[in-house]
Each structure stands twice: as C-alpha cells, then as structure tokens.
Write a protein that binds this DNA or RNA. Sequence first.
DNA 1: ACCTGAACACCGTTCAAGT
DNA 2: ACCTGAACACCGTTCAAGT
Lengths: 200, 200
Amino acid sequence: MPGATRRPVRRRADVVAAALDLLARVGLPDLTMRALGAELGVQQSAIYHHVESKQALLGAVADEILARGPRRRPRADAGPLDVLRLRCEDVRAAVLAYPDGADVVMSMWAFGLGGRSPVAEVDALLGSAGVPAEHVTTAGRTVLHFVYGHAYDEQSRAQAARAGIVTADAPADFATGLGIVLAGVRALAEDGRAGGSQPG
Amino acid sequence: MPGATRRPVRRRADVVAAALDLLARVGLPDLTMRALGAELGVQQSAIYHHVESKQALLGAVADEILARGPRRRPRADAGPLDVLRLRCEDVRAAVLAYPDGADVVMSMWAFGLGGRSPVAEVDALLGSAGVPAEHVTTAGRTVLHFVYGHAYDEQSRAQAARAGIVTADAPADFATGLGIVLAGVRALAEDGRAGGSQPG
DNA sequence: ACCTGAACACCGTTCAAGT
DNA sequence: ACCTGAACACCGTTCAAGT
C-alpha cells in the first residue's frame, strides 16, 4: 500500500462519512459492505464493529445527507408558509445532492431508522400557520411525502434514462406541486380558524 | 402440434400470477427467482424464458396489483374531485392488499416499468375539475405521490414494528392528508378559472 | 419452445482468532 | 478495542445441453 496513512482511530462517524463519499461516487446499488471496507482500508467484517447492520448505517447516512443540506435564512417578512416552502426546497436540495439520496432518506424515514430531522421544524411551522394541533402530524407527513416522493421520482427517472429505459414523461414541476400541497395546508388552516371540518 | 394434448404451457401471465401469490405469502425480500421457480415447479433459470429480468417481472407485478384492486362506482351526483377521491382510495386499497405493494408500485412507476394505469384517469379527472392543462401532469403526479407515499409509509412502519424497531409515531390519517392535497388541487383549479398565477 | 444443471460473480452477516 | 481471514447462506443472471 504505497502511502497508506492509517487513521489513528476509526469511529462510527468515519464509517458514515466514508459511506457518503462512496454513495456520491457509485450510487446505492454499489454501496456494498465490501466496497465500504475497501474505502476505509479494512475488511468488510470490521465495519460491524462500528455499525450494527447495513440498515442502521443507511439510517445514519440518511441523517447525514439531511444535515449536509443547505439551510437558507428566510426573509424577515416571511410568513410561516413561506418559511415552510423554503425548508421544503432545502430538504429537496439535500436529498438531490447524492445519487439515490431520496430513496435512502425516504425509506429510512418510513422505517423509523432516520430522516426525522426536518419533522420537528415542519410541524412547528404548520402550527404557526394555523393548522389545528390534531392535524399537524398528518399535514407534516403529507408535505414531506410530496418532497421525498417528488425527489425520488426525479432521481429514479434519471437513473432509468441512464439505464436506457424509455420514460417519455416530462419531469414534473416541483414548485407547482409544492404550491398545490401548501395551498391545501392553507385551506386546512383557514378551516381550523373558522372552526369547520376537514377540507374536502 | 395445435390441439394436441400436452403439458400445460407456462406463459408470462402464469409467472406473474405466481409472483403475486408468492409476494402475498412471503413479502418482497423473499420474492426471489429461486423461490418463484419452486412456486412454479421449475428451475429459476427457466423463468428467464418468460421475463427478461426480475425488474421487468416486478413491473408486471405492479401492473397486476393495480389491476386486481377495487374499482368502486361513483355516486351519480359526484363531481370530478369526488370521483378522484374515490379513485385514490381504490388505488390505496390495491397497493395495501399485498405486502410491500406500495414499494413495488411506487418504485416501478418512478422507474417507468409499470404502475402507469391510474395516471390517465387521474389526469382526466383533474382536467374536468378545472386544473389548467399545463398543470394537469404535475397535479396528477402530486396526487399519486401522496397516495403511494402514504401507503409506503404505512406498510414500512408495520414491517418495522414486526422487526421490533420502535417507531413511536402514530399512523398518519389518510383521509385528512388526501383532503389537503385535493384542497390544493381545488385552489389550483379555481386559480386557473380566475386566470391567476400558481397557488402559493 | 421450454427447461435442466451447473456455474459465475456477487451479496450481508457471523465468528474464532489475532494484535 | 479493533481488525483479519474465512466461512455461511444466500442473491440475479447466463448458458451449453437436453427434450
């Protein structure tokens, strides 16, 4: 190994960081424990000293993808739904920054192994916007389902195109789709303020 | 030998049907080509005589899951968005009827290998509801992203719970989430009628 | 045309053994 | 504590050969 520099201590964070680098270079299907071992300069079995399983590793990768994403400051006069739109665009940018990033984050979020970091702020913004407390969790999931689902769709279609599969469909407009979801959220908030029932 | 008595011919449809049965019994992770061969009483390599690859098979499985789903008749006085709600509930019922059904349908749809069957009717209903033509495709994808994303979430959490992973979150309310998306669609339709810009 | 039998090139995970 | 080396029990896919 010419110029092999042995790192003093390998920690879990090193394994996760190497997994991110590997994901960026080769994509999720080639992010194998063997390839990750090679990336770290150890046997694949050594990885299990730092993470319990590949799924747990991917949960940490999902969290790191979100943590590395942008976090733009809202304008001073921005309302809660304006800030929410900004956060959704930031989350989208975060998952699009890595190949299969939306796949990793969405599946780990659904599996309860990661991807929870945007939830608290999204829910808080929905509450500020006037969404009734009993519907905040559901509304937050609806917003994030759209953001992740749209990004997943976009990355999958790009991957399919690379694999030579005809898709024929034009890419869907994120801004318009998010506008639809946020308009529905606004209706739910106004409905809550008026003391009415669910939107329908 | 037309008309001659011979062993039952295995066709592609038989392979797909057997894959559905196997999916129902063991779930997607255990739906392997070897297990499918055993289900059909042939070697795994024989399956490749009827389908090009496992991905192509899963595309056909996705289409079949949707085709086997319910298709309720709308009431005579139902408007386009009422019918759309009914269709969304039907699609949801279809994918929830099989373990990992939402995963299969969503990923094959995103990959362009199946799951396209609800798109035409959803888009037609959105057009009838007054969504501007240039936004119909995007609105349709937004609706289906929600339906698939919600079902995927629900099935994943159930699977995580079975695997002993703590999820803590209550299941999100489908009716409320769909109400949010449809309220946003209505706002887009009214906006289109008023000649205004995108909702926001 | 349809299928077998065997192989190829991989996986994630485990574990006794080393240091 | 951290890692090696080797194995275990699998994958999807290919292909010459049979019928």
